[in-house]
Structures are given as structure tokens and as C-alpha cells.
């Protein structure tokens, strides 16, 4: 019995030591250099738009005169779309006393902001559609919003398909960004003579069924949002719509590269650069996050995929063609 108690105590000690050791291993890196600023980048997951945000962010910092390795170093972490990992990444940034956190996509920004509360570490976000809804519009936080240019997109569709009536949109009901964008589409579509057929899904596995439903309802075209769930299975959507001869419009350039016909959308690289410039001001001490309001991109690019357009027999009017950027991968 006594032996047993001893074992228990040993177990507890082993466990605690383990925890401390593991924590210690990871934390030994920083704080060696004192002057260099550390930026913790928490990216929610890996996909082309979010990657572009990060690349643009670093470019923006360099353009503002800050050199990686000299003026700042980057602790880049990727949560792999896992909420728990996301939380722990943010917590480790706070523990490591980074000088600035950058949250790419809403969940990451929210996690960073919560973790930064104690030490009041400045947070910069990007790729968030609705910072007000996410309560990221006040406090030691600022950044850039990737709110979609809904009217520009509707205008583009009208020019490319003068006879189209019904637009099919699939969105994820739990993505706040998508829900607010759908509301905007429903509000603005009638002015352009469109009706919206929206289908909400809860998981990626339901997307292809939603495609079939929309096709059976006889929509004239599909339109994507920046919905992570839906965009993630874009190739599967395109396979079905191409077979049915229905064009799909993207919400940004990466989707056009994948085979969407066209998009009036954001250049995430540019969005990232804008974010990097804001971060540079904060790091240089020129302004605090409180003093910088969050920004949206006011200029949008028109991206087209000629091969996909030709396949759908859509001809591009000369004035659209003049400002459009050819974005097919091939």
C-alpha cells in the first residue's frame, strides 16, 4: 500500500515535469535578441487566398522599410482549420510576448484578440468580411476587411449574361461572412434584374447535393462567396456545372484560376500588402491600433477565364474585356 502511494506521487511529479519540460522546450527560442520585433502570424488554414494574404502582409512590411530578420522576425503558425489548435496558437503568442499578432481569417483574429487581452498586445487582422459583427472594430486591434464587392459582381454578371435571371448561391450557415453577404445579395439583386436561389449547407459533404438541387431548380448561373467550406470543393462543383453547361462566377481571382468564368473580386495579395503597411505603422510606433480604423479595399479587379467563358459560349463585351485580367491557369 505504501509502495502504491509512492508510485502515485512519482506519477504526479513525472506528469508535472513533463508539462513543464514541454512548455520549456518550445519557449527557449525567443527573447534572445532584444531589439528585433516578433510578429506572430496565426493563419486559420491553408488555402490560396489566405496564403496570398500572408505573402502580401510580409511584402507590405518590407515595402514600408522593415526587413525580415533585421527589424522583425516572424513566428508563422497555421491552425489547419482546427479551433482548438487555433486557440493554443494564440495563447502561445501571448506567452511568448510577441510584439504584434496578425490573425488571418475571422476565427484566428478572434482567438488572437482574446489571447492578447491580458498583455494588451496589438492585433492586426485581414481577410475578415465583417469586423463589426465579429466585434473586432474597437480596442487594440485593426486590419483589413475583404468584404465582397456585391454590386460590382452583379454588374459583371449582367454584362456577360444579359438574359440570365436566376442566380444560384451555396453558402455555409455557420459562416457569419457568408450569411451577411447573402443578405446583401438578396437586397441588391432585384436592381440588376436577378432573383437569388440560395441554399445553406452545414458541412462540406452537403455541397454537391446542394449543387444538384440548384441545377434542378433551373438556375442560369452559380455565384460563389468567399465561403471556405464551399470554395474548398470548388472542383467538384465545377465538374457538375460544366456537365450541365451552367457557368460559375468566382468571388476572387484564385477561383477563376480554378475554372470559374469570371469574378469582380479582391486581390488578396494587395489586401495583404495594405495590412502589412498598417502593421508597419504600429511596429514603428507611428500609430496605435486604436488610432487606425479598419480598412476595406475600394478598388476591385475584373478577372476572367477565357477558356471557361468560351466553353459556356459567353462572349465578353469589349469594355469589360478592356479592363479584365486574364486569369486562367493554363
Amino acid at each position: 500500500m505504501k509502495n502504491n502511494t509512492l508510485k502515485k506521487i512519482v506519477c504526479v511529479i513525472v506528469c508535472l515535469t513533463l508539462v513543464m519540460c514541454l512548455a520549456a522546450c518550445g519557449s527557449s527560442k525567443p527573447s534572445s535578441e532584444t531589439k528585433i520585433k516578433t510578429i506572430g502570424i496565426n493563419q486559420y488554414g491553408e488555402h490560396a487566398s489566405l496564403d496570398n494574404c500572408r505573402i502580401g502582409f510580409l511584402q507590405g512590411l518590407e515595402e514600408a522599410g522593415l526587413k525580415e530578420g533585421v527589424d522583425f522576425k516572424v513566428d508563422y503558425q497555421n491552425a489547419g482549420f482546427d479551433d482548438n489548435v487555433n486557440t493554443q496558437i494564440a495563447a502561445s503568442f501571448a506567452a511568448n510576448n510577441v510584439d504584434l499578432m496578425c490573425g488571418i481569417a475571422t476565427p484566428s483574429a478572434v482567438a488572437c484578440f482574446a489571447a492578447a487581452e491580458d498583455k494588451n498586445i496589438p492585433v492586426i487582422f485581414t481577410a475578415i468580411s465583417d469586423p463589426v459583427q465579429a466585434k473586432l472594430d474597437s480596442g487594440n486591434i485593426t486590419g483589413t476587411s475583404d468584404k465582397l464587392p456585391v454590386e460590382a459582381q452583379l454588374d459583371l454578371i449582367r454584362q456577360l449574361q444579359p438574359d440570365a435571371e436566376a442566380i444560384g448561391i451555396i453558402y455555409t450557415t455557420s459562416e457569419a461572412n457568408s450569411v451577411s453577404t447573402i443578405a446583401e445579395y438578396l437586397e441588391k439583386a432585384p436592381a440588376y434584374g436577378f432573383t437569388i436561389e440560395a441554399i445553406g449547407v452545414t458541412a462540406q459533404s452537403e455541397v454537391t447535393q446542394a449543387v444538384d438541387t440548384l441545377l434542378s431548380k433551373g438556375v442560369d448561373l452559380f455565384n460563389n462567396l468567399t465561403d471556405n467550406n464551399v470554395v474548398g470543393v470548388l472542383p467538384a462543383i465545377l465538374e457538375k456545372t460544366n456537365e450541365a453547361g451552367i457557368p460559375v462566377y468566382g468571388s476572387e481571382v484564385e477561383q477563376v484560376k480554378l475554372g470559374c468564368v469570371a469574378s469582380a473580386g479582391i486581390d488578396y495579395l494587395q489586401l495583404g500588402r495594405q495590412t502589412g503597411a498598417m502593421a508597419a505603422r504600429v511596429l514603428k510606433g507611428e500609430a496605435t491600433c486604436e488610432a487606425i480604423p479598419y480598412e476595406t479595399i475600394s478598388e476591385y479587379g475584373i478577372y476572367i477565364n477565357s477558356a471557361a467563358l468560351a466553353e459556356m459560349n459567353i462572349s465578353v463585351p469589349a469594355d469589360v474585356a478592356a479592363k479584365a485580367i486574364e486569369s486562367s491557369e493554363a
Partner: peptide, 25 residues
């Protein structure tokens, strides 16, 4: 309770080592 702490410590260690997200799990 200790099992839970050990699990979270493992994740934290993996993050702190700077492992790529794809390898984390």
C-alpha cells in the same frame, strides 16, 4: 484531469516546436 493537461501540453509542445500544421496531428 491530468490526462487532459498532458494532451494540451502535447499540442502546445508541437506548436512551440514550430511544426507545420500538416504534421501537427
Amino acid at each position: 484531469i491530468i490526462g487532459s493537461i498532458v494532451y494540451k501540453a502535447c499540442i502546445q509542445a508541437a506548436i512551440s516546436f514550430g511544426l507545420p500544421a500538416n504534421l501537427l496531428k
